[in-house]
Design a protein around this nucleic acid. Structure first.
Lengths: 233, 233
DNA sequence: TTGGATCAGTGGCCTAGCCAATAGGACAGT
DNA sequence: ACTGTCCTATTGGCTAGGCCACTGATCCAA
């Protein structure tokens, strides 16, 4: 844009199966279904939700893939994992749990940074650099660097080449996103955050796991400082 | 069974969408499709694979949920992530997963041990001690200490008073259980494991987070040694 | 008590149809 | 030459309906 302001974010479209899966999850939680309990029959559930059975089936595929349910031919669909255990839902009051989110980020992301330093490829480094460049441009244009920040962390996660850790990051993704947004909303914080990214990226590029972990630890400590200020303020 | 032999394992049934998803993944890998490339149209792919479009769509839902593809209405289905990085594939071969499980345990459990050292209560310490005592008794009676081992790790997790980290441990629980079982099945390993527990417990009781984390890191390294031996053997 | 048959209820997958979304091309206006 | 609008072909989205396969429970006979 000519006046330097960033564009509004893209419209995200949701497939119906996603909405149905979410509604089923919410319903399971609300009714207090236990592991091993059977869900209503597909025909009934589809009718109740006002969708076709094929769409309902897609939603159940999604829930089966993530392990919430097991679909048994001829018997029904049973709950495999408690939905209260869904991370995004388990943590209710954000302010009460912020320290916990941060300590979890510390555990996961310092490890991810260390592994990235060991395992990064040329492409990984290019993406990390691109994320930093994008964040720089956003901040220079007056933005908060939110997308660049997110892109940076995703790039570090990808560079770790650890699918399981990446999965866990995905699980706590919404919570993590909030801590990042809070941090970046403070004046001067985008610049400080960007500097932290720089240090992490340099350590990863240098192939120094300990330095990468320490830089990430410091970076997450930056978020922690914000949290304390906001809590006390 | 009267003659003491174990029963053969249960027959596992595979839903067609799973097979289709796997075949698509294999095909993507074999053709060397790159991220951003478009898959053939659903109608064509379904015909080629000899399944209905609805079934193909289910398979694509599964692949979308795990992040391999993005399905775009009116445009086609594009590859989002290289299939070599797919969790579904990575989970498949257990031997391939061990290093990853171990590094994830390292990230989570060293943090848990450090937090336990900071936050443990009298009750927490009592439970940790009880777990060690139970494991000792089991091993002295000729067992492998499996339950005591599990109880010990649960006690450390509880002593950390971090619900989010506890929840993540729960998520990877089955995978972690396997690494523990493999470790404890080696001769002499129960004793070594118990000694590791002792060191962790002492550091936690002493309120020394760094020592607790280091002891836990060493303990998990013990499991890692087992994995390497089994792989080479 | 065990094995076999039957039945009702459930999911599995298919076919067919029509609508919604997207990208690309053509054309008109500036 | 560039931009905007419209049209078309292709693609996915979802629905409806059908019939078959599987499962667990029940009943009956040996």
């Amino acid at each position: 844009m000519a006046d330097g302001r960033p564009l509004p974010p893209k419209v995200t479209r949701t497939r119906l199966y996603e909405q149905v899966a979410e509604q089923i999850t919410a319903w399971i939680t609300a009714t207090g279904l236990a592991v091993g309990d059977r869900l209503p029959p597909e025909r009934e559930l589809a009718q109740q939700l006002g969708v076709s059975r094929a769409t309902l089936s897609q939603a159940l595929v999604a829930l089966e893939v993530v392990g919430v349910v097991t679909v048994r031919h001829g018997d029904g669909t049973v709950l495999t994992r408690p939905t209260e255990g869904t991370i995004a839902q388990a943590i209710r009051a954000h302010a009460d749990r912020l320290p916990e989110i941060i300590e979890t980020r510390d555990a996961l992301e310092t490890k991810l940074a260390a592994l990235a330093a060991e395992r990064r490829t040329h492409d990984d480094l290019a993406e990390i650099e691109a994320a930093i460049t994008a964040m720089e441009a956003d901040i220079a244009a007056g933005g908060r660097g939110v997308e660049g920040d997110e892109r940076f962390h995703a790039a570090v996660t990808a560079a770790s080449h650890s699918a399981l850790l990446a999965r866990l990051m995905l699980e706590i993704g919404p919570l993590v996103r909030e801590t990042r947004l809070e941090s970046l909303s403070q004046p001067e914080r985008p610049h400080a955050s960007l500097a932290g990214h720089r240090r992490i990226a340099d350590a990863i590029a240098a192939g120094d796991p300990a330095a990468a972990a320490a830089a990430m630890h410091d970076h997450i400590g930056l978020v922690s400082d914000v949290a304390l200020i906001r809590t006390d303020g």
